[in-house]
Design a protein around this nucleic acid. Structure first.
Lengths: 202, 202
DNA sequence: CCTACCGATCGGTAGG
DNA sequence: CCTACCGATCGGTAGG
């Protein structure tokens, strides 16, 4: 039946438990149990608990970087943004555990690594910021919303997807992406009645 | 100098530590240190660690309920939504620790309480859902975005505010609310060029 | 990957 | 609110 575990298995199991119970809520013994071995046996595969967290979070960061790379360099800011959004959603849904740990457990990282991860996060966010700024410059996007703030709003929506979305209940992935695009592009206001929801003061 | 702590002090300190380090990352001894006393002395004030978590999370839930109540019953769906949004942001910024714990540490709650809190969360979310549905009915809001999904998108933005917003750097609260209203109401698309960001398929 | 173990820390209690 | 303590569990190591 069960054969020997690889380091890969250990990291995968760790990402699941870290995502579900948090870093501090996961013991090495519980992680061992998940793999059918003792907590102490894990040290044949990894240096320690923190090393596992670093590995999982690094994977999360890498997925996002690769997705941003793959999003490419389309003509319009709007289509570049759509590619970034679709890519982000793909990463969130295809690598839930790593992404969750990346998003929620960074505070449990040792200072040095934490700073590095925050840096990676900032660089990734700047991709969105730049696309928004470019779209303002071309006239595709409105100029009365700061690209920095807009990027944060969009990423807030995207990062929360993992908390509620379940494939096919009722939306499928393509519909989710379409909904995000409608919302990000035009908001909830009915076309021609945008004033109805405009703020009272700026 | 320092006088005796009240139960109130203990709960307040707990909400800070739970928010910063998480429930599992906070020990009763660390909590005692925060208040200048021993971990064992906390049991003169509270029944246990889990009781503290329940108390903090319940406060978070109550703040949101009260805000929803105070948001009132304005004429238009748009202004009701604006009141809900402003109220939510007020709660997030005025009760950061309780809100953070409410949002991030619910998984650490014992099953019964956790279910109750999830129920409260659902009821609160339904306020947003109902306003969106009402706005679709009156024609204020677009009909091609599911109110359920719209409510989740809006709350995703609002709940994330605590992660990045710092009063006056550079936005002040009123500007934050205005930015959210612009984004939620009209998205990032430039007026008259909405097609630029429309999704390719529905 | 297990056996056998380490010192440290955990939430919590009895009694004052 | 402290003293003194409990059993359980923690991350981790030595040696096989």
């Amino acid at each position: 039946m069960s054969v020997r575990n690889t380091r890969e298995d250990v990291v995968a199991a760790a990402s699941r438990l870290f995502a579900e119970r948090g870093y501090h809520g996961t013991s090495m013994r519980a992680l061992g149990r998940e793999l059918g071995l003792l907590g102490s046996s894990l040290y044949a595969h990894v240096g320690g608990k923190q090393e596992l967290l670093v590995e999982v979070v690094d994977r999360g960061a890498r997925f996002f970087e690769e997705a941003a790379e793959a999003a490419g360099r389309a003509d319009t800011a709007a289509s570049r943004l759509e590619a970034l959004i679709a890519g982000h959603i793909g990463v969130v849904l295809d690598h839930r555990s790593e992404v969750r740990t990346f998003l929620n457990e960074a505070a449990a990282l040792d200072t040095g690594v934490r700073r590095r991860i925050i840096g990676a996060r900032d660089r990734y966010e700047s991709r969105f910021r730049e696309v928004l700024a470019a779209g303002v410059a071309t006239g595709e996007f409105r100029s009365d919303l700061d690209p920095k703030v807009g990027a944060i709003f969009i990423l807030s929506i995207l990062n929360a997807v993992d908390r509620w979305f379940h494939e096919g209940r009722p939306l499928i992935r393509r519909q989710l992406i379409a909904s995000v695009m409608i919302f990000v592009g035009s908001g909830i206001g009915a076309p021609g009645r945008l004033a109805a929801i405009a703020p009272k003061a700026g």
